[in-house]
Measured scan of single mutants.
Amino acid sequence: MEVRTIKVFTTVDNINLHTQVVDMSMTYGQQFGPTYLDGADVTKIKPHNSHEGKTFYVLPNDDTLRVEAFEYYHTTDPSFLGRYMSALNHTKKWKYPQVNGLTSIKWADNNCYLATALLTLQQIELKFNPPALQDAYYRARAGEAANFCALILAYCNKTVGELGDVRETMSYLFQHANLDSCKRVLNVVCKTCGQQQTTLKGVEAVMYMGTLSYEQFKKGVQIPCTCGKQATKYLVQQESPFVMMSAPPAQYELKHGTFTCASEYTGNYQCGHYKHITSKETLYCIDGALLTKSSEYKGPITDVFYKENSYTTTIK
């Protein structure tokens, strides 16, 4: 009895394709271990004539594949690729409408935090270190965002349907971005203890939790000093293409032309909904596939993004 075979390709990165001759009487799992086709788990399936010449994702289970996976995804987590594939199996079914010149995501599976993050990423200057993220990001900007969303979920250790947080998501993504040249110098002034300067680099240099107003941050924000008295913390120097200011959701007025974009969060910790506000020729609110415009805006804002380049204080 002759062994019926077909020729397929296996890959971990969709760049390096490895030619395989597979036995049609055995499952993919018996031949390769966990195997995925377009995100779908085909591990328990036997090869079919229609699979001839198709590319299958496999887990990096030998040295060659491990090197290829690390170079593309910059992670050695053995569960990463499987999590990416199972997320992709959902995100490829989502709709990605162009809204006001940006790629958004039609609401499904509690994905409003991903839509808000995706919209924000198209408006701030950011370059990702893992080629996987950078490639998928370019495709997302062009309207094909399924891979990018699935990668975000995998890097953030999230599953489809789980509630997510924009600030946490951005923080994970910033860790995989090139923020080497970003720098922030802060000064804390206390009447009792004097003053202390701190220099922050990388992710810490672009994120701040405690106030939404970048102007206020430049002037000074009140913080408790270690001595128990009130101290003032203010920005001395900022070198970065953008800054992200966050605070627990509270009524906040966004003035046209003073910011790049913002995240609105309605609801409580267990259950809520994100919308995205962007400042173009007027203010726009993007909620999944829905767009509304207004000249002014007041609502429960939790993150505001500002364009920056270089700032030095005039406070002496």
Score class of each variant (00 low, 15 high):
V160E: 02
G257H: 03
F259S: 02
R184Q: 03
W94Q: 05
V42C: 14
H273I: 02
V3T: 14
Q237W: 05
T199C: 12
L163I: 09
L59I: 14
N49L: 14
E2N: 14
E2H: 05
L254H: 00
G267A: 05
I105S: 07
S295Q: 15
T313W: 09
E68Q: 09
E281G: 02
P47V: 05
L163Q: 07
C225P: 02
N187V: 12
N309G: 12
V99C: 09
I315N: 15
T11K: 08
L88F: 01
D180N: 14
V221R: 02
S25Q: 13
K316V: 15
L121T: 04
M244Q: 05
L153A: 00
K255T: 05
G164Q: 08
S104H: 06
Y269D: 07
C193E: 01
K307N: 06
Q20H: 15
K158Q: 04
L59Q: 09
N147P: 11
Q237D: 04
Y72K: 11
Y252P: 06
Q230A: 09
K255C: 01
V206P: 04
Q98D: 09
Y297M: 00
V99Q: 00
M207I: 07
T313Q: 15
H74F: 10
M207W: 12
D165H: 05
Q123S: 03
N309E: 15
E68T: 07
G143Y: 08
K280L: 15
V67M: 14
G143L: 07
F305H: 04
V203Q: 13
E308I: 11
G29C: 03
A150C: 07
A142E: 14
K201I: 08
T192N: 13
C225F: 01
E52P: 09
G33M: 05
R4V: 13
A177Q: 03
Y265I: 02
L119S: 06
A87C: 03
L126M: 09
L102I: 06
V203D: 08
G101M: 00
Q31Y: 14
K127N: 14
C190P: 03
I105K: 08
C190N: 00
R167D: 00
S294L: 15
L151F: 04
Y57A: 08
G101Q: 07
G143C: 01
D135P: 04
T199W: 01
E204M: 07
M244V: 09
T169G: 10
F148T: 06
I286N: 00
H74E: 08
K92P: 03
D13H: 10
E281M: 02
F56E: 00
V160W: 03
I6A: 14
V236Y: 07
Q122A: 04
C193S: 03
S310T: 12
G220F: 02
Y137D: 04
P249Q: 02
S295G: 11
Y96V: 00
P131D: 06
L173A: 01
C271N: 09
T198N: 09
Q123M: 02
F242K: 01
E215C: 01
T169C: 10
G164I: 04
L290G: 09
A108I: 02
Y265R: 00
W94P: 03
S104M: 10
V21R: 12
T91P: 06
N129E: 09
N187M: 15
N100V: 10
V185L: 04
R4P: 14
Y284G: 00
A136E: 14
R139Q: 14
E144W: 06
E52Q: 13
K219H: 06
V12Q: 07
K219Q: 13
K54W: 14
R83W: 08
N14V: 03
N147G: 11
C149Q: 06
T91Y: 03
D62W: 09
Q98G: 11
L65I: 07
Y265M: 01
H51Y: 05
K191C: 10
L163D: 00
S50Y: 11
V21D: 15
T211D: 09
S104V: 01
C182G: 14
G164A: 02
S171G: 07
F242E: 03
Y269R: 10
K275T: 04
N16V: 15
Y297S: 05
G33L: 09
Y137V: 06
S79T: 14
F217D: 02
L102M: 14
H90I: 12
V166Y: 00
V12F: 08
K7Q: 11
S86G: 12
Y137P: 09
F70T: 12
G29E: 12
Q251L: 11
T75V: 11
P78D: 15
M244E: 02
H18T: 10
Y172K: 14
P34L: 14
G272K: 02
E308Y: 13
L212G: 07
Y172H: 12
P34I: 00
N157K: 14
K95P: 00
H74N: 06
P60W: 06
F217M: 11
G267R: 02
F128D: 03
A140F: 09
G143Q: 11
P224T: 15
L65A: 10
V160A: 05
D287F: 02
I152H: 04
Q196G: 06
G210Q: 05
K218H: 00
N89S: 14
A87W: 03
T278G: 03
W94A: 09
L118C: 07
T5L: 11
M244P: 03
Y138E: 15
Q270D: 14
T116P: 03
V221Y: 09
A115K: 01
T169R: 08
Y284M: 11
F80N: 04
P97W: 14
Q123V: 03
A136Y: 07
P34F: 13
K95E: 14
E125Y: 07
K7T: 13
R4S: 14
N268P: 08
I223K: 04
T260G: 00
L163E: 06
L291Q: 10
E239T: 10
F56M: 10
Q196A: 08
R139D: 10
N157L: 00
P248G: 03
G210Y: 03
A140Q: 04
T91D: 08
F80E: 01
M85K: 10
Y297P: 02
Q237H: 15
R4W: 13
I277K: 03
C182D: 15
H74P: 02
L212R: 03
A154H: 00
T76H: 07
T314L: 15
R184A: 09
F56L: 13
C112R: 05
T10V: 12
P248S: 05
V58N: 06
Y138K: 15
A136K: 04
C261S: 04
L81P: 11
M207Q: 01
A289M: 06
G272T: 00
T35R: 14
G161A: 06
T302Y: 03
T192F: 11
A40S: 12
Y214V: 06
G272R: 00
I124R: 04
K106D: 15
K106L: 11
A132W: 03
Y311Q: 04
N89R: 12
T103K: 06
L212T: 01
V206W: 04
Q230F: 14
P248D: 01
G228E: 04
G288V: 03
C261Y: 05
L173C: 03
S50F: 11
S25C: 11
S240W: 03
F259A: 03
G267E: 09
I315Q: 15
K255W: 02
T10W: 08
A150W: 00
R4K: 14
A115V: 07
Y269I: 10
D62S: 15
A154D: 04
T192V: 10
T91G: 07
L290N: 15
L283R: 02
D38L: 12
D135Q: 12
S294C: 15
Y84V: 05
T27L: 11
S79K: 13
L173V: 09
C112D: 00
Y234F: 08
K293A: 11
G228Y: 01
T11D: 09
K218C: 02
K293V: 11
V236D: 07
A87V: 05
H276F: 15
N14Y: 10
G164T: 05
C182S: 06
T64C: 15
D23G: 12
V58R: 11
K191W: 01
C225M: 03
V160L: 06
N49I: 13
S246G: 06
L59M: 15
H48D: 15
A40H: 12
I45Y: 15
A231D: 02
S295D: 15
A69L: 12
V166F: 04
I277C: 01
V12K: 07
L126S: 02
I105C: 02
G272H: 03
E71W: 02
G202P: 02
I45R: 14
G53P: 04
V188I: 13
G143T: 04
E215Q: 00
G267N: 07
